[in-house]
Design a protein around this nucleic acid. Structure first.
Lengths: 356, 356
DNA sequence: CTGAAAGCGCTAACAT
DNA sequence: ATGTTAGCGCTTTCAG
């Protein structure tokens, strides 16, 4: 053993240079793989580095290069498999290009997001991928963008912001899904989302989330084209935890003019909705039809399997990372940005509306 | 607008100092909140900083302090909700103490893990939380530990390594679960895991993963105490993707002396096993009993709901982060390390063994 | 191709 | 309390 791992100070280029009997500059060049170095010197330096168990200090490196080879990812909830998958797409892609990922969870809270962006910027990440908690309250994103830091929005658009965005076209799929339900005879279609709003929903309420707004618009169009009245009284926001969701579900199903179909805004909500329906002793789709966003594997296991709106989440993570890295490397955007479409996967949870 | 966000160079302490008409050192002290600064100076500095839109360069800060306020987390697969939840526990806890998290995915590949550790160390993370891909091949972890960098193992132990570890006691719960199955009359109990091994399983094969080894041992003890022969021919490793798992399930169920009960090593496997069983047209638990590790919410939605082994995953993430941060801050370990126990949650997927 | 020296932005002695 | 002067470990002129 020629090395003593327990020594306090790390071994630096200076140490390696001395051991290899070259200047610090030459050692650094050989180690950092830049500049001009003779084979002889490179060999000696590398050997010395190996021997001394040298490891570069990436912080120091980042300080002068200005690049940290790190990207910041800000999402609302990694615990949600939707983001888990997207994150996987991002990290897989980042790794391929030699980037690391710092992950921050915001709990869908804009204040936390503002803070996260600050911290990440202070850490000098090379770029940011953000699933913005709000599509409206975007001052912090605006300033990131104006500062020239590469930024890509994931999953949700921010209409006022001219930033590259990777998201599914929601209005269309919402229209398609709603139309499907309408064709099955449903008129009382409920929509449940966790989106936090200060007031209960009413027709025309401006929504903080473009994603939800687009879905609402899609539903609206479907009803309009069918010449039917909007069941806007069945839109429920602020569906917090499982209990809250179950409560909402019960209300929707037991009120005077109840919902005959429920659309859940994501898989986490869907889970609780289905549970509540089962608890009520109701049958899907005989008593109530069910449809949800996100195609998780378990949706094939329920009885009946669930009709869902599948989104290419992993691919979107990949695309977001690709786009960001392209920006970081200063390459121009390809002529056509890839489009991401959701698909309505009809399984068994949607059936004809029950007769009243 | 007195600031020009598009200026190339960031504003530094020097700029702030000049604007506030104090020395760089005083400005730095006021900004960094250390040392002694008069109220007057602090005020002027903070005002100038605000005015100039100053943001500290954490990289530079980290360079002299030696602390990056960042921890590295290395897991096999964030896409797996098990790790998603654990990661949430880690990030939540880290944030509370002002730490950020760099997340690396290894695909359960030791080589990738070795690499990840290197990168993270080069980035000067203050500590590491690792769910080791192998409990045997741990040279890289050993050297991290010997170098004095705080390190906490999550989810899996490494017997040869004297490192703080947050994991569930697996032998016991495996024994308990197996016994439950035995009492229901099962003798042919299969166990399916994704663990990668070069050879197919045979009795006594040393397992690379302590977690799996412990589960195997628990099953073994259950059979021994019941005075029954071990169905070791029903242990299946290398269950890669969904298709591979389904194939294995079919084999297990259709071979001459088939399994009457199947234990899935995690929720991802469980999913495919249940799907395969349904595809075969078999009924749970009438034709085959099923039990799996991880209590995901969807396991309550299947018909019948699944009997599972619940693990306090989020809490373990929290505990791992707490322990690591404690190490980083140089505080001693509490007298008693918290114990984490899994629980057998009996729902409907285990029933009496079918008569042959 | 090589080396000396000057920073990167900040903190940490050391004086005053 | 404040300022001066060194660094942290690395990259980057700039000479040779």
């Amino acid at each position: 053993m020629s090395t003593d791992a327990s020594r306090r100070r790390d071994v630096t280029v200076a140490d390696v240079a001395k051991a290899a009997q070259v200047s610090k500059a030459q050692a650094a060049r050989a180690l950092g793989n830049y500049g001009a170095v003779s084979d002889d010197v490179r060999e000696r330096v590398l050997a010395a580095a190996e021997e001394l168990n040298y490891r570069p200090n990436e912080l120091a490196r980042s300080m002068n290069t200005g690049k940290s080879n790190t990207i910041g990812v800000v999402v609302g909830d990694i615990e949600n498999p939707h983001f888990g998958l997207a994150t996987r797409g991002i990290t897989d892609t980042a790794k391929k290009s030699g980037f690391n990922v710092i992950l921050v969870n915001t709990d869908e809270d804009t204040a936390a997001e503002v803070d996260a962006v600050k911290v990440l910027l202070d850490k000098r990440v090379d770029g940011l991928i953000i699933a913005p908690a709000s599509s409206v309250d975007t001052g912090h994103l605006e300033s990131v963008h104006k500062s020239g830091r590469p930024l890509v929005l994931l999953d949700r658009k921010a209409p006022g912001l001219d930033v590259e965005t990777v998201a599914v076209e929601m209005e269309g799929i919402s229209y398609e899904s709603t139309t499907h339900l309408i064709q099955e005879g449903h008129r009382r279609i409920a929509f449940i989302s966790t989106i936090r709003m200060d007031e209960p929903y009413f027709a025309g309420l401006p929504l903080d989330s473009s994603q939800i707004a687009d879905r609402r618009d899609g539903m609206k169009r479907a009803f309009e084209e069918a010449g039917l009245p909007q069941p806007e009284d069945l839109v429920r926001l602020n569906a917090g935890g499982p209990e809250s969701i179950k409560k909402i579900t019960r209300e929707l199903l037991q009120q005077p003019d109840p919902a005959t179909a429920i659309i859940a805004s994501d898989g986490l909500i869907g889970l609780s909705v289905v549970e509540a329906i089962q608890d009520l002793g109701l049958s899907i789709p005989d008593d109530v039809s069910f449809l949800m966003y996100d195609d998780f594997a378990w949706t094939r296991l329920t009885t009946p399997p669930l009709t869902v709106i599948a989104q290419p989440v992993y691919e979107m993570g990949v695309a977001a990372a690709d786009a960001l890295i392209r920006q970081i490397q200063g390459r121009k955007a390809p002529a056509a940005a890839p489009e991401f479409a959701a698909t309505l996967v009809k399984r068994g949870s949607v059936g004809p509306a029950a007769r009243h």
